[in-house]
């Protein structure tokens, strides 16, 4: 190591380091906007068969990211069951993407809190990364043309009605 002062190179080095960090962090900071096409993904379904999001075109999709360790997720399941039952005939598909890294954790959760909607498994976290979600749970409402209508994070009792209204307003089939 030389004894000469490192002032300038050091500053340059620091700057490039900061820039590198920004480059690494920024793509993750871009959140999905309403109106954008919903990124497509293919995951394993409950029966082990592949399940592709694009295959649900024509349906209104309520995409929910959940994990066994997430407490509000536990509250959201009965509500999602009710939504699926109520608006399924109107063209709603509730798709719950589990992000647990260990499948038994998800299975244990489902044994306690049964899901009456479609479940897919994403232990690698590819889908939540595509949607740049910032918390658990997160949900995305996707219209029949595959565009994002709404991005929502968290699940609170007082938000149920608002979410239901958004679903009802976007149903492709107005049976009721």
């Amino acid at each position: 190591m030389r004894a000469t002062p490192y002032k300038l190179p050091l500053r340059r080095w620091t700057q490039s380091l900061v820039a590198l960090c920004c480059v690494l962090v920024l793509p993750l900071a871009f959140a999905l906007e309403a109106g954008q096409p919903a990124p497509d993904f293919t995951l394993a379904g409950a029966d082990g068969k592949p399940l592709q999001l694009a295959g649900l075109r024509g349906k209104l999709v309520y995409l929910d990211f959940w994990a066994s360790w997430c407490a509000p997720c536990r509250l959201s399941f009965p509500w999602m069951n009710a939504m699926q039952e109520k608006y399924g005939p109107g063209g709603l598909v509730v798709l719950g993407v589990n992000v647990d890294q260990r499948r038994p954790d998800a299975d244990r959760f489902l044994a306690q809190v049964p899901a009456k909607f479609t479940i897919a498994y994403d232990p690698q976290g590819t889908a939540p990364k595509l949607y740049a979600i910032k918390g658990m749970p997160s949900s995305v409402l996707i219209d029949p043309q595959g565009r994002v209508l709404l991005v929502h994070a968290g699940f609170r009792d007082e938000e149920r009605d608002e979410l239901e209204a958004r679903i009802r307003a976007a149903l492709p089939l107005r049976a009721n």
Partner: peptide, 14 residues
């Protein structure tokens, strides 16, 4: 800069 390593993502916090 908070990026000594890849930041832990929300779905990785089990």
């Amino acid at each position: 800069s908070g990026c000594a390593m890849q930041p832990v993502q929300p779905w990785e916090k089990g």
